[in-house]
Design a protein around this nucleic acid. Structure first.
Length: 553
DNA sequence: CTAGGGTTAG
């Protein structure tokens, strides 16, 4: 029966096997139950898996752990609640199953929010587990360290009180301090560490890079006793994120250190002279070569810098090099590049590559495909990907909305927006930029105004300058110039050059000279508002207009 | 349990 279960490929197989298990009275068999939970969660849904667990009479701690583990990494917002429900159930009088270290490790990965975390921390203490294992302590550390600034003190407290610490504990603390810009604290820990691992060094490189200290990152990299691929990748992506493609390219080119023949002869030289330490170091360096992450970092660097053709050509080089296969992250970047270039030809090639290589259509990959198809004008294929995707996230919907809008299908874009809201997904600030600009493209003033209101009053999203920009543009271009001005003067943000440019051209469009003069003067008063170029333009247009008026008189 | 790569708007 176990073998049948593990061979299940789809929902039907699984349901039949499940039925067989029930019919044969095997539903309380431990090992079958564990597997049934995992496979159900993979092939059907976590809810189904949960039902399976609940119908069992004697689930053991592994069954619960397996269940909680299935909740990890789900995008659904009720997973934390469900994981906790499973935990409560195992602790209830009817079952009274004792949790172990694994239970808390998994549980802490499904939840977020300091309050819930502290509650689980309390449970850990109650079970007396913290003293017994570094493992649980590290999981707690990791949880607090990723819970924002408020978690830092709690993490430090856990760290200080840990009866036993290992390298992982120290590494977690270092990464945490780096993430909250406490570089000094991180370095202090690094220097006082009893024993550093390669992960420690790599964390420090990444941390320094995140804090904009690339020179220090580089010198740490140079000082490392031993490096691996990750060390190189840390430094390369550090340069990439700093926008320093020159240095990133240099490191990328240097990366495959030496040919195997050269390395081997150096190693035997060291070994022959009795310097085994150097021989071992050389041996460890020998295996270093570009991996898929290296390629992805470099390709993403080009995409981030809008060097889309360079991204595509590096991708082709990667295929020619034929040493590592592109994965879904490579493809996402390349799809993004194709989308920006409007190159349907490239995009289609990637799409068929995905099908040919049976690459799993993850949510982000699906999103990237939708974006590419719609931005290249192929709405039908975009929609068909959208319909195929079982796990849509907010980005999926946003991509669809803006994809339709740039193709002039603004009404339909709004329909998608409404459909998303109907499905109970809460729109975010990015979605509102997309949907407001859809109104803008479609000249839908009434809808735009009401959406803006809804965003602020119903969803409690604080408008950013881009939201104001969309609405002001919409109002101004449709002739509601005074309302646009009123909005500019009442908003709690300083209007930027884009907004003023919008107003200037709208005033000209609608031939409103008085307002044009008023707006121009406003802009001229704010000498420091823009770069000189823009200010100069306004001045120039304003003078032109005045001259024109003089001649009219 | 700790280190490296990704998608949406403007």
């Amino acid at each position: 029966m176990l073998r049948f279960l593990q061979k299940c490929k789809n929902t039907n197989h699984l349901k039949q096997t499940h039925l067989q298990i029930l019919v044969n009275g095997l539903k309380d068999n431990d090992s079958l139950l564990h597997n049934l939970i995992t496979v159900s969660s993979d092939l059907i849904s976590v809810d189904y898996a949960f039902t399976v667990l609940q119908t069992s009479n004697s689930p053991d701690v592994i069954a619960y752990n397996t269940m909680i583990k299935c909740f990890i990494g789900r995008e659904n917002n009720s997973t934390a609640y469900n994981a906790l429900r499973a935990y409560k159930q195992m602790r209830s009088r009817a079952f009274l199953v004792s949790p172990n270290s694994f239970t808390f490790t998994f549980l802490l990965k499904t939840i977020e929010g300091l309050d819930v975390g502290r509650m689980i921390h309390g449970e850990v203490l109650k079970m007396g587990l913290d003293a017994s294992s570094v493992f649980v302590g590290n999981t707690l550390l990791n949880f607090y360290s990723k819970s924002g600034n408020d978690g830092v003190d709690l993490a430090s407290k856990v760290f200080d009180e840990m009866p036993e610490r290992d390298t992982v504990s120290w590494n977690t603390m270092i990464a945490m301090y780096m993430d909250c810009q406490e570089v000094e604290s991180a370095i202090k820990l690094f220097e006082s560490m009893p024993k550093r691992s390669i992960v420690t060094w790599n964390s420090v490189i990444t941390g320094l890079a995140k804090n904009g200290k690339m020179e220090s990152a580089r010198s740490v990299f140079d000082k490392m006793p031993e490096k691996n691929e990750v060390s190189w990748n840390c430094l390369i992506s550090g340069y990439v994120k700093a926008g320093d493609l020159k240095n990133a390219e240099n490191m990328f080119d240097e990366m495959p250190v030496k040919s195997v023949v050269t390395s081997t002869s150096i190693i035997s030289g060291y070994a022959a002279s009795g310097d085994l330490e150097s021989a071992r170091k050389m041996f460890n360096q020998m295996g270093i070569k570009r991996n898929v992450v290296t390629w992805n970092a470099m390709i993403a660097g080009y995409v981030n810098k809008s060097q889309f053709n360079e991204a595509l050509s590096l991708f082709h080089f990667m295929l020619l090099d034929n040493k590592c296969k592109p994965d879904h992250i490579t493809l996402i970047s390349i799809l993004s590049a194709s989308s920006h270039l409007g190159s349907l030809e490239n995009g289609k090639w990637i799409s068929s590559y995905i099908n040919k290589n049976k690459i799993n259509l993850s949510t982000p990959l699906g999103n990237a495909l939708i974006d590419m198809f719609t931005k290249c004008g192929d709405i039908e294929n975009g929609k068909s990907i959208f319909n195929k995707m079982s796990n849509k996230c907010i980005i999926t919907w946003t991509t669809m909305v803006s994809g339709l809008a740039v193709n002039g299908k603004c009404k339909e874009a709004l329909n998608f927006f409404n459909k998303m809201c109907d499905e109970g997904i809460k729109p975010d600030d990015v979605m509102f930029i997309a949907v407001l600009s859809a109104c803008n493209h479609g000249g839908m003033v009434k809808e735009g105004k009401s959406l803006f209101q809804k965003m602020v009053n119903f969803y409690g999203i604080k408008p950013k300058i881009e939201h104001y920009g969309c609405l002001i543009d919409l109002l101004a271009r449709s002739g509601e110039l005074h309302e646009a001005i009123r909005l500019i003067e009442n908003m709690d943000l300083e209007a930027n050059s884009v907004i003023w440019a919008t107003m200037i051209s709208a005033c000209k469009l609608h031939g409103n000279g008085e307002l044009f003069e008023y707006v121009s003067k406003k802009v001229l008063d704010k000498e420091g508002l823009n770069c000189g170029y823009l200010t100069f333009n306004y001045k120039f247009e304003f003078i032109n207009w005045k001259v024109g008026r003089c001649f009219e008189v």
